[in-house]
Design a protein around this nucleic acid. Structure first.
Lengths: 186, 186
DNA sequence: TACACTATGTACCATATGGTACAATCACAA
DNA sequence: TTGTGATTGTACCATATGGTACATAGTGTA
C-alpha cells in the first residue's frame, strides 16, 4: 500500500503552514493528512506523540531556520550592520511581506502557549539577545540595545497583526522601513 | 428548572474571557456553559446562531467599550493630550498590564479572522483613525499622525505578544512608557 | 388564579475529533 | 529469492463536538 518513502523533515513545511493558518486547535489531523498527502498511519508513524509532537517539531524547525539565517549572523557576524540588514530582508521574505503569520507569535497569544511555553519563549529570547548583541557591536550601550531589540521584535509582531487585520501589506512594509531608520539613528 | 433570569449582556464578559483564553476553535460550548454557569438550553436561547453569534456579540461589546472609553475621547475631546493620556491608562488597565490578551488581535492572527474580518478590521480602523485625529489636534500633520497611530497600535499588539511569550509584564510597561515619550516628542 | 411568554436543564443526535490496530506494501540487504 | 524492517492506507474506537428538541419551571400580567 505504500507509495513513497518520505522523511519526517519533508513533512514539516506543509504542517507548519497548516498550523499557521488554523492554529493548534484548528489544525485537525484530517487536515494535516490532506495537506501533507500522508495518511494517518504514516503521520503517527513519524510522530507517535500525535499533534503535540507535530507542532513541537514544527516549532523546532522554525527555531533552527531562524538560528541559521538570522540569529547566528546577528550574534557572530563581524559586520553587524550587514547582519541586521539581512535580518530585515529575511524577515520580509519569510513573512511574505506580512501576508504570512508568525506561528510562534500566534502560539504565544493562544492557549497553545501553555503547551509550548519553553519553545515560544526560547524563540523570542534568542532573537532579542542576538539582535541586542549586534546593536552592541554597532556601538550601542547594552541597556539601550536591549530596549531597542525589544522594540523591534514587538513592532514586527504587531505589524503582522495589523497587516493581517487590514489585509494590507503596506502596513508591514512601512513598519520595516521605520525600524531600519530607528536602528540607523544614533 | 429555571433558576435566575439572566440578560444576554451579562454573559458577554465571561464569554469574552473564554474566547480570549482559548481562541474561537478552542472555546467549546461545554466550556462556555461552565464559565457562564448556563446550560446549553439557555445559551442557544440567547444566541440561536451558536458559537459564531456568541463570538460576534463579544466582538461587538468590545468595540462598544473601546468606542466609549477610548475612541470617542480621542476623536472628540477638546484636550487631545489628555485623551491620549487616558487612552494609555485605559489600555494598561484593560489588558491587565499585558497579562491579558487582545481578543481582536488574537482573532486577527487566527483562522477566525476570516469569519470576523469586518469586525476585526473595524476595531483597528476606528482606533487608528481616532488616535490620528487626536494627534492632528495636537498639531501633527495628517500623514505623520497616520503613521504614528499605526506605529502605536502595532507596538501595543506586539508588546502584548511579547509580554505573553516572556510572561513578563515589564515588557508591556516599557513599551507604554516609550510610546508616551514618542507621542510627546515633536 | 389563569394565562402567555421567557428561561432553563436534560436527553439526544449526527458528525468530527485524536488516536490505535493491523494488514498490506515497499526498499533493500543477505 | 527470501527475509527484515521501515512505510503506508484503511478500518475502527471512544470521546468530544456543535447543535436540536422538548418538557419543565419561572415571571409578569390581566
Amino acid at each position: 500500500m505504500a507509495k513513497i518513502v518520505s522523511e519526517r523533515a519533508d513533512l514539516l513545511p506543509a504542517m507548519a503552514e497548516v498550523f499557521r493558518e488554523h492554529g493548534f486547535e484548528g489544525a485537525s489531523i484530517a487536515l494535516i493528512s490532506e495537506r501533507t498527502g500522508l495518511g494517518k498511519g504514516s503521520l503517527y508513524h513519524f510522530f507517535p506523540g500525535g499533534k503535540e509532537e507535530m507542532a513541537g517539531a514544527v516549532l523546532e524547525e522554525i527555531e533552527a531556520w531562524f538560528t541559521t539565517h538570522i540569529f547566528a549572523p546577528l550574534q557572530w557576524d563581524s559586520d553587524a550592520a550587514s547582519a541586521i540588514d539581512r535580518m530585515f530582508r529575511a524577515v520580509v521574505e519569510y513573512f511574505d511581506s506580512g501576508r504570512r503569520v508568525c506561528l510562534v507569535g500566534a502560539f504565544a497569544l493562544a492557549s497553545s502557549r501553555d503547551r509550548f511555553t519553553k519553545q515560544v519563549r526560547s524563540y523570542f529570547r534568542m532573537w532579542k539577545e542576538a539582535l541586542a548583541a549586534a546593536l552592541v557591536r554597532m556601538g550601542r550601550d547594552k541597556p539601550v540595545a536591549d530596549h531597542l531589540a525589544e522594540e523591534v521584535l514587538a513592532a514586527i509582531q504587531g505589524s503582522l497583526v495589523l497587516a493581517r487585520a487590514f489585509d494590507d501589506r503596506a502596513v508591514f512594509a512601512r513598519s520595516m522601513t521605520r525600524l531600519r531608520r530607528v536602528i540607523g539613528e544614533r
